[in-house]
Design a protein around this nucleic acid. Structure first.
Length: 560
RNA sequence: GCCCUGAUAGUGUAGCGGAUAUCACGUAGGACUGCGGAUCCUAUUACCCGGGUUCAAGUCCCGGUCAGGGCACCA
């Protein structure tokens, strides 16, 4: 409906300009005025035309106003200075909007564009920690947004099963006492993390271990110890998957990088790169990208002939190029240089250059995290803490059976975490503080509460969905603002998908909840003259809040 | 040293070159609590510095300052 009123506004201006014999600019600019006294849409065409016509904007506006015809969806068109302001007829508009809102509100028709979206892809050398969480939450939310916007999306987790880090864990298994089960921790990924930490300690004391690890890598690329490597990775990954499941983060496919070495793809990639003429060789084979503005050459193979992460990544990206129309990667900004090198290499070989979404780091107040040094807060810890704090809040307010309270607490805890990350633009550096991440007084819990409140109201009124919208219903004030915001939701989805951004959805959910709460205070629903219309409105808010939260991977409980 | 990214109220944050800069927390008042108070209303305080482009700059360009990151035969 929002797009519809934009179109009506543009059409009316176009018609007016044609009537005046003025050449119509390619795009008629519209914006949303800063306050309701200035209407619902405003156009700045006169500013733009002023330069070309050598006339004052205000005069051009006056001319347009003299001939413009008001489309039926608008009540009036007025000029405020040089602006042309459109005022929506909220009686007509609101009814039409409510008729159009279904369960899947916000969804766009299929776009016939396949997106391969890689995210999380943390190394299986320990549990996910809060440094990884940003990748997972941005990636998963973006996948949901793209799907709602009509894209065909496949999410992939790229599993590093052959890097030095994994080889170190295998070394530990071969050389230290005890099997993985003997390491402390409830979850498999935590045990692997402990072992990894242990091996790092040994390595510090005895640098000679490094050669042994190199030997393991070499042998593995030649096909030895395959089961052992696989076992370690699967073991760790299964623990990580549990965590992601609890966070509501989903991947359609796990792609193991080792496959690209074993099936010869990496060798073929290296051969093809040689043929491009951009490679050079001393002890190692490298790619010289100076011509593309990158001073640092990209090393493709170690001196012992084994491959490197980036080399395998090139092979992986060529595969993704085959699978999708649009390739999106979510990466920490520390990968900027490497990603640029890989992107250029992929293009050299005729693949599609990925769009990369970079995010800045999450650090602890005392500094950065490190799996190697054992300094991190795991996502499991974070979620447990979120749950127990949320449970405390739930119990403080209401007396509920334990299992119900538990479910609600889980939704609220998860919501707090996901919202904490999703609401920020990715280029902001985050310093993690427990009380910021887990605040229930406001933030996500208040959005979930607005949803629960809507549910309760509908239940109380025995809402069926068949209620009629009364004649003469014409929203004003808070109610009008609520209608306006509802109409915007599909636009927010579309724009977020196009910009590959998640946080506008988070902001929108907050705005909608706030506006609904104000409306709830100021406007009676049950027993009012417009009970039918308002119940339909509340139901529409309910659906929209639920769908918006769902885009962020957050569950909206019906009671809390 | 070179490269990338940030800088907006006490704190955290949004902002397509356009009319009075968003939201949240905090603080201080207040409301109502008969559709659930995890509520509502009011007040409060901000675009790092210096140049430039433009009818119009928080937004674009150049130069500083501060902060984070990168510049591996790690990933």
């Amino acid at each position: 409906m929002f797009r519809y009123i934009e179109k009506e506004a543009r059409d009316s201006i176009t018609a007016a300009l044609e009537k005046l014999g003025i050449k119509v600019p390619p795009e008629i600019k519209l914006e949303e005025p800063p306050n309701p006294q200035l209407g619902d849409l405003a156009s700045t065409v006169s500013f733009e035309l002023a330069g070309k016509l050598r006339r004052a904007p205000i005069e051009i506006t006056a001319d347009i106003m003299s001939v413009i015809e008001t489309p039926e969806i608008f009540e009036t068109i007025e000029s405020k200075g040089p602006y042309i302001n459109f005022f929506v007829d909220y009686g007509r508009f609101s009814s039409r909007l409510l008729e159009s809102i279904q369960d899947d509100y916000g969804s766009h028709p299929p776009r016939d564009e396949r997106v391969i979206l890689e995210h999380t892809s943390a190394n299986p050398n320990g549990p996910l920690h809060i440094g990884h969480i940003r990748n997972a939450i941005i990636g998963d939310s973006l996948a949901r947004i793209l799907r709602m916007a009509g894209y065909d999306v496949e999410t992939q987790y790229y599993v590093n099963d052959m890097g030095r880090q994994i080889a170190m864990i295998v070394w530990g298994l071969l050389n230290l006492d005890g099997d993985l089960e003997d390491y402390p921790g409830d979850k498999m990924d935590h045990r692997v993390g402990k072992l990894y930490f242990e091996v790092n300690q040994r390595l510090k004391e005895n640098p000679g271990i490094r050669d042994e690890v190199d030997e393991l890598i070499r042998k593995y690329e030649a096909g030895e110890n395959e089961e052992l490597f696989r076992k370690v990775v699967e073991y760790c990954l299964s623990g990580m998957e549990e965590t992601m499941k609890r966070l509501h983060v989903h991947h359609d496919r796990f792609v193991w990088e080792g496959q690209f070495v074993r099936d010869g793809t990496v060798d073929r990639v290296i051969e093809s790169l040689r043929k491009t003429g951009y490679t050079g060789e001393n002890d190692v084979l490298y790619l010289d990208l100076e011509e593309f503005g990158l001073e640092k050459e990209l090393v493709l193979t170690r001196s012992d002939g084994t491959s490197l992460y980036s080399t395998r990544d090139i092979a992986y990206h060529l595969q993704k190029s085959e699978e999708g129309d649009v390739i999106i990667d979510v990466l920490g900004s520390d990968h900027k240089l490497a990603a640029e090198q890989v992107g250029i290499a992929v293009e050299l070989l005729g693949g599609k250059r990925p769009e990369v979404i970079f995010y800045e780091f999450i650090t602890l107040p005392e500094g950065s995290m490190s799996t190697r040094r054992g300094v991190f807060i795991s996502v499991d810890e974070l979620m447990d803490e979120a749950h127990s704090r949320a449970l405390h809040e739930v119990k403080k307010r209401r007396d509920l059976p334990d299992d119900v309270a538990d479910d609600i607490a889980e939704s609220i805890g998860n919501g707090a975490i996901r919202y904490y990350i999703a609401r920020l633009s990715p280029e902001k550096h985050i310093v993690f503080r427990w009380d910021d991440a887990l605040s229930f007084e406001r933030g996500c819990a208040s959005i979930q509460y607005a949803h629960a409140r809507a549910c309760k109201l509908l239940e109380k009124a025995s809402f069926t969905g068949e209620e009629d919208i009364e004649d003469g219903w014409k929203p004003e004030g808070d109610e009008r603002e609520l209608v306006r915001l509802l109409a915007r939701f599909p636009v927010v989805v579309e724009e977020s998908a196009l910009a590959r951004r998640v946080h506008p959805v988070a902001q929108y959910a907050q705005d909608l909840a706030n506006t609904f709460n104000s409306f709830y205070r100021s406007t009676p629903v049950i027993g009012s003259d417009f009970e039918g219309a308002r119940l339909r409105l509340v139901d529409s808010v309910r659906k929209t809040l639920r769908n918006a939260l769902n885009l962020l991977g957050i569950h909206a409980p019906e009671t809390m």
